[in-house]
């Protein structure tokens, strides 16, 4: 069984405190990133594309930008950063010598990864509003949803961290999993332009597909039954990876 008490917040707080200490570096990317993408892709490339399914191109990619940012921040937090804390800084070892257990350490790390995704989404939202590419008030939902999506990517990331032999080996999931997702999840062009088998593959195996799908419904304020499917897929996968990550980490660290 998984043993998590309120003590998990002390792990989360540790990362929050460290994050605030370097807030200048941490708060800048979420402002810069969407501006760059919107200018280059939305308004640069977008002048040739005009509209996708009747939607202006910048409006089409806006939810994808949020989704990608949430994915990157949560995934990289729980791969490279968590690995550094676990392996080089021995922070996990220090914490499990206190009444906080290993399950809580790993859960706290994942909740923190999710929080980071949420912070990024919250910081991007004003920029997107400024460019007038997202609908209000529905787009406020981007923020809580970023926590759920962030938790999913954090869980997947933590599974890789638990089995990686070294920090360099973490480059494999980054290139072989995250980068293809960045391109083939209905981010910069609609999924149905792809051959049908790839479409099914994307829906079955690429979490970002569902996240982009749901975020697009939020920013366009057009919800359909498909979005329930997105949500169910995300919720189920989040639970599975959350539990799996804890089990794999126990196997690695409790010796």
């Amino acid at each position: 069984m998984i043993d998590i008490t309120a003590r998990v917040q002390s792990v989360w707080r540790r990362n929050w405190d460290a994050f605030l200490r370097t807030y200048r570096v941490n708060f800048i990317p979420p402002f810069i990133e969407p501006v760059l993408y919107l200018l280059a892709l939305g308004f640069g490339l977008g002048t040739y594309i005009e509209a996708v399914d009747g939607i202006p191109y910048p409006v089409f990619i806006a939810p994808a930008l949020v989704s990608i940012s949430v994915m990157y921040s949560a995934f990289f937090e729980c791969t490279y950063s968590s690995f550094v804390r676990m392996y080089y800084q021995k922070t996990f070892d220090a914490i499990i010598a206190t009444p906080v257990g290993i399950d809580e350490v790993i859960a706290g790390e994942m909740l923190w990864g999710a929080t980071r995704g949420m912070i990024y989404a919250a910081l991007m939202l004003p920029v997107l509003l400024l460019f007038n590419v997202v609908a209000m008030p529905s787009s406020l939902l981007l923020i809580p949803f970023a926590f759920l999506a962030g938790l999913l990517f954090a869980g997947i990331a933590m599974c890789f961290t638990a089995i990686t032999p070294s920090i360099d080996a973490l480059n494999y999931p980054s290139f072989l999993f995250i980068t293809p997702m960045f391109l083939f999840s209905g981010t910069f062009f609609p999924l149905d332009l792809l051959p049908e088998p790839i479409q099914y593959f994307a829906l079955a195996a690429l979490p970002l597909t569902h996240v982009v799908g749901f975020n697009r419904a939020i920013t366009l304020a057009t919800f359909s039954p498909v979005n329930l499917l997105n949500l169910a897929w995300i919720a189920a996968a989040t639970v599975i990876f959350f539990v799996l990550a804890i089990r794999l980490m126990r196997r690695r660290l409790v010796v």
């Binding site: 707080r13 405190d17 220090a94 206190t98």
Partner: peptide, 18 residues
Amino acid sequence: NLDPDFSAYRNLLVYARY
């Protein structure tokens, strides 16, 4: 395994929180 992200004093506070 002191926490390199914090000062000496903060290390004690963060640890006390655990």
